[in-house]
Nucleic acid binder design. Sequence first.
DNA 1: ATTAGCACTCAAAAACAAAGAGTGCTAATT
DNA 2: AATTAGCACTCTTTGTTTTTGAGTGCTAAT
Lengths: 353, 353
Amino acid sequence: MELTERKKKILKAIVEDYIATAEPVGSKAVAKQLGGNVSSATIRNDMAELSEMGYLEQPHTSAGRVPSPKGYRLYVNELMEQHRLSRAETEKMNAALHIKMQELDRIISKAGQYVSNLTEYPTYALAAGKSRMSVKRFDLLYVDALSVITVVMTNDDRVKSGIVRTQIGIEAEQLPALATVLNKEFTGLTTSDMSQKLMSISQHTLPAAFMLLSATVDFAEGVLDSAARAEIFTAGTNRILNLPEYRDIDKASQLINYLSDDEAQLPMTDDSSPMKILIGPENVSSALRDTSVVVASYDIGDNMRGLIGVVGPVRMDYATVAARLSYFADGMARLFGKNELPTGRDDKEDNNK
Amino acid sequence: MELTERKKKILKAIVEDYIATAEPVGSKAVAKQLGGNVSSATIRNDMAELSEMGYLEQPHTSAGRVPSPKGYRLYVNELMEQHRLSRAETEKMNAALHIKMQELDRIISKAGQYVSNLTEYPTYALAAGKSRMSVKRFDLLYVDALSVITVVMTNDDRVKSGIVRTQIGIEAEQLPALATVLNKEFTGLTTSDMSQKLMSISQHTLPAAFMLLSATVDFAEGVLDSAARAEIFTAGTNRILNLPEYRDIDKASQLINYLSDDEAQLPMTDDSSPMKILIGPENVSSALRDTSVVVASYDIGDNMRGLIGVVGPVRMDYATVAARLSYFADGMARLFGKNELPTGRDDKEDNNK
DNA sequence: ATTAGCACTCAAAAACAAAGAGTGCTAATT
DNA sequence: AATTAGCACTCTTTGTTTTTGAGTGCTAAT
């Protein structure tokens, strides 16, 4: 019993019909789909064999057939035709890609939203793989005796700032010296090292100066912390409520809750390829067992990678989703590429997160 | 036909029973609730009159009674007992109120999340009432010939910063002069005025300097824009999926979509009182017609107000929700109060939004 | 004014009865 | 040997009818 060419065609027709309708598809429908030069009885025989081989499943004896995960896998690997993006689609995406440059987090979250709109499925987006963060440069700007503007530049060239207040008055003239101390002693350190260093110099420093140093370091630690925290942004989770497979409130709310959970283990791409399709049970986390995930990654700067994942029912339009997601991910990569800057401002800027 | 004391007791019992069970409540249940010294027949008569007066409704003839919005209103106004917060509750909230000081937006969004967890209903949170924003102070810090750190302080004392790049090289020595120009000419202006001013000085300024000025002003405009945009944060919208009144997917998804819509007109408090309860049809927007909203406000600094709203079914536990929300709003106000600063850093800081 | 008693109503649940889509198999056809 | 027509069989879906039971409204007694 082998996979003849016709069987493949049948499988393809079934997958595509089922993707479109979410209804089990019967032999007659397939026959029509294939142009009518084979009868439904023939198809029926082939379908029986495809079932036996594990590519199709039957909800119950007298229903049509539904692709099994194995069937989808074959479809995705061999049968699926590359979806050609229409002019309208690319234009829409290009428009979306003109994201006005802002904080990194916001861009990433926005990207997720766009993809969700584009695909009509929920998405998640995040940036991963940052290396250890440290401060590269400190600046202090005098405001008044009790307030100083602190500007901090991280090792990946982001700049953040804030007002730092101190209980003990400080004079404008003292600031340069303090800034020098900060730049000499506190650059290149991790947060915990900074705290330690702060301890070690507490002895031989004037109280007023130490107060300010301490507040500044505290601020810097906050900046590093929030920069290191890789937040997961989800978008469009409630779109699943439109899907027939999630008419069941409990199922829907379970998935929504999983997606909204910050701790959720969401599929990543492996380093080898920029795109990955996970079908139903191929997902590790049980909450995704009967959903599929298409996930793509793109480079952000040198040692960071952005990730966008689309979550949908196993009956997902893989071709279209994959095409759009891949196009969009490419666009994001270009956006972060050194060369093409979309506005006068620089992409690396992403001040204030 | 008047509202006797017993009728009120009956109404109260019905409201509370219905809040707890979401099932129409019958005369017998009320009789038991009231201690059994009146018979169910008596209750029945009273219930008939309460129906006639419009405080109760009947889903159908042979079902129990359900409070009408008018009934809830009476309950909220007169019958409801102040919910006493338990020690555990206040402790939990106090813990939540130790929000580590960060950007304003994040605090507000966090607050919404906490309240959502606390009440188990969806919430929305926002900060409103900012006046026109302008820049109060500019600083420029030299990085290299093509990059400058721009630090901008807004009229409400927030500080933001970012790297600004320019195509034409600039020397460190030129920066102070440019900063002076910025501080002299561009402070106190709205974004559109800034653009205009930029035009007007384009003639008598060196190209290199103008380039940088322009990029800096562009950056400042972005800062003001995003500061002025009052974002609405919603949290826990999917909690409504747990409510029996939203077993119907379409109804649920309609409400969820409404809440997720950035443009949605959500109820505010009026200036007179810090708390407001809107019951069902009292809501203006039709999407909320059969939900209730409890909304509380708190002061943030001098001319801003924070707002947290809890959205739930009309059958909402008003007493508990109101008590918790009010406590939390007070906590938030204290948090923003000048005196009690939870950390060494200052609340006004909220750099980088 | 209250209450017991009872007939009546009506939604919800259960039980039952087609209807129809789709299969699997057999036997005929190419 | 592969294909196809034909047909009995299966099982969900859909619609209809029955049954059940909570709850009411009214009447008559307390």
